[in-house]
Structure formats: structure tokens, C-alpha cells
């Protein structure tokens, strides 16, 4: 329990530090990547490339070991089947990302950097998630 907490806290802290170092905590820079017609800012592509490399190695290791170091088993999502919610949800996410220049990670990290503006976005995001849950429950 304590060990899980510490490992997850270290991972989250390194992730948040990486967002700050990379420039991705700055919504204007993220928007600059999404603005193909303007002064295009390629930084986000470098961040993705830098992040995908160690993670690809991690997946290769994951295939060769039975269990993670501090848990009984791997709990990773299925990769195959495409469905409508995946596509509709991802398109909606991109719209919100373009509107505010923020996705969930940088917004939460931003609570320590630009608290008032980040808090507005984070609260709205949690409301959006809650709306999705009630919507899901009423149709299920």
C-alpha cells in the first residue's frame, strides 16, 4: 500500500516535472502546435517522440516479465477493437484541447503554476467527466 503510493507519487512527480520542462505546461505553446496555419511550433512532436521512446522499451520489457515489480499483475487495456465511443470521444477531446490549449496532464500540473486559470479548467473537466458518467448510467 505504502510502496504503491510512493511509486505512483514518484511517477506522477516525474511526469509533472517533465511537462514543466518540456514547455507543455504552456497552453499557448500547445496551441502553437495545433495552429498549422500560423507560426507552427513543433515542440509537442519532440515531447511525444521523447516520451514514446522509453515507453516503447518498457512495453518490450513488459512482454518478457510475469508481473510488475510492486503489483501482482499487469492491468493494461485491450488494444484491438475500434468502436464509436472511442472515435467520438477522441474527436470531442481534440476540440476541447484546441479551444483551451490544455489536456488533462498539463492542466493538473498547472494547478501549481497558474492556479486560478488552471483551476477553472480542471473543475470544468471534472464536471464534464461526471456528466459523462451520468449519461452513461442513464443509457446503460
Amino acid at each position: 500500500m505504502t510502496r504503491s503510493f510512493i511509486i505512483a507519487l514518484i511517477a506522477g512527480t516525474l511526469f509533472g516535472a517533465g511537462l514543466a520542462v518540456s514547455g507543455m505546461a504552456d497552453p499557448t505553446r500547445v496551441r502553437g502546435f495545433l495552429d498549422l496555419g500560423g507560426q507552427w511550433d513543433p515542440t509537442l512532436a519532440f515531447v511525444m517522440a521523447g516520451a514514446i521512446f522509453p515507453m516503447a522499451v518498457a512495453w518490450l520489457i513488459q512482454r518478457r516479465i510475469e508481473a510488475p515489480m510492486a503489483a501482482s499483475q499487469f492491468a493494461v487495456p485491450a488494444t484491438g477493437k475500434l468502436d464509436r465511443p472511442l472515435i467520438t470521444g477522441s474527436i470531442l477531446f481534440g476540440i476541447g484541447w484546441g479551444i483551451a490549449g490544455l489536456c488533462p496532464g498539463p492542466a493538473i500540473a498547472g494547478l501549481a503554476l497558474s492556479p486560478s486559470a488552471a483551476l477553472i479548467f480542471v473543475v470544468a473537466m471534472i464536471v464534464g467527466m461526471t456528466v459523462h458518467r451520468s449519461f452513461n448510467r442513464s443509457t446503460a
Binding site: V47, G50, I52
Partner: peptide
């Protein structure tokens, strides 16, 4: 800085996967 920050993010994700078995 993008690459360095990206590597940090990727290592953090690797810790979650190989340490705790989570995405």
C-alpha cells in the same frame, strides 16, 4: 527541452507500467 521533458514523461509512464502494472 521538449525532448528532455518528453523523456521524463516516458520514464514516468514506464515506472507506472513496470512498477505497478498500470497505464
Amino acid at each position: 527541452p521538449g525532448l528532455i521533458g518528453g523523456l521524463m514523461i516516458g520514464f514516468a509512464a514506464a515506472i507506472m507500467l513496470l512498477g505497478l502494472g498500470r497505464i
